[in-house]
Design a binder for these strands. Structure first.
Length: 204
DNA sequence: CACATGATCGCCT
DNA sequence: GGCGATCATGTGG
């Protein structure tokens, strides 16, 4: 069973003019998806109510040629399997013995790329830093291993809702915590909302 | 089977 | 900016 989300993340999607991102949104180029997820809402439907936050920080993981990606060199294990699925799946992994991180799978089946959700802003009234980090985001929304592989598109419990119109000003930097990845550690694949106070670490 | 390590965080200095 | 908490996962024997 998936843990309950933090009550402070409850919100009303109807008040925000949001719509479900379609499959085609996720099948696009991973860097484009990572940028377009800034400003989108990562949401969870739980016991008749909606919970979630507006994504303000992401990282692109580019698949078999990216030394920082779990699918580097085609590595394919039960854990990583959702990355090999269709764009729009959720990929959750456990790290450091105590934390989970959530990724949105991109591209087509067999092309294991994804976008890590690093930080979000909760609805009005929620503590500013409640979702400011990939593990905190998962903790607050109740995202655990059992959510890995779920489809974000099929009208299920977890969804990505995108706003119309205006786009935030987006900053770019290298990814966090991937120093081991050689040349790939310097690639500019972290994206964030320049105006958000909820961005997890320094603003490169 | 055993072991090394990590897409982290918060607390300490 | 260093460190400990704490364990699934992958790799190698």
């Amino acid at each position: 069973m998936i843990p309950a989300p933090d009550k402070r993340l409850r919100f009303d999607p109807l008040a925000l003019d949001l719509e479900d991102a379609p499959r085609s949104f996720f099948r696009r180029d991973t860097i484009l998806v990572a940028k377009d997820l800034i400003g989108a809402w990562f949401t969870r439907h739980y016991r008749g109510a909606w919970y979630g936050g507006r994504v303000v920080e992401t990282e692109a993981y580019l698949g078999t040629g990216d030394a920082a990606a779990h699918s580097w060199k085609g590595r394919r294990t039960p854990r990583v399997e959702p990355m090999y699925g269709d764009g729009g799946l959720l990929y959750v992994f456990f790290i450091y013995g105590m934390h989970y991180c959530a990724n949105v799978v991109t591209r087509l089946p067999g092309d294991p790329q994804a976008v890590l959700l690093r930080a979000a802003e909760g609805p009005e009234g929620a503590p500013v830093r409640l979702l400011s980090g990939p593990a905190k985001l998962c903790d607050a929304l109740g995202v655990t291993r059992s959510a890995s592989g779920l489809d974000l598109v099929a009208g299920g419990r977890f969804r990505i809702l995108v706003p119309g119109g205006r786009r935030p000003s987006i900053g770019v930097s290298p990814r966090v915590g991937v120093d081991y990845a050689g040349e790939a550690a310097a690639w500019p694949l972290r994206f964030f909302d320049r105006t958000s106070a909820a961005v997890s670490v320094s603003r490169g």
